[in-house]
């Protein structure tokens, strides 16, 4: 079994792959719209100076997600 960790704990510039998304419905839908389905590669890139939000590379674009949501997303490493 692959080891799971939450997206917020993934280190910067480290590759993670989506396992599941347990955010509330609205965010979950939005993330799906952005193509964040199972096994999608996601890489933490930036952290906001006012903290609480990080930006991730998802399919070549930069998407900011708040920590409380990235805490609810599980990823695995390859």
């Amino acid at each position: 079994m692959r080891e799971l960790l939450c997206l917020n704990d993934l280190k910067f510039n480290e590759y993670g792959y989506i396992y599941d998304i347990n955010c509330d419905d609205g965010v979950k839908k939005r993330l799906l719209d952005l193509g964040l389905v199972k096994d999608t590669c996601i890489i933490p890139i930036l952290k906001s100076p006012s903290s609480g939000i990080k930006a991730f590379d998802i399919r070549g674009s930069l998407i900011a997600i708040r920590d409380e949501d990235s805490n609810l997303i599980n990823v695995y490493k390859k």
């Binding site: 609205g26 965010v27 930069l62 998407i63 900011a64 708040r66 409380e68 949501d69």
Partner: peptide, 10 residues
């Protein structure tokens, strides 16, 4: 605060 997702364009 509700969560939101924001794209940072190139």
């Amino acid at each position: 605060p509700s969560s939101f997702v924001l794209e940072l364009p190139p």
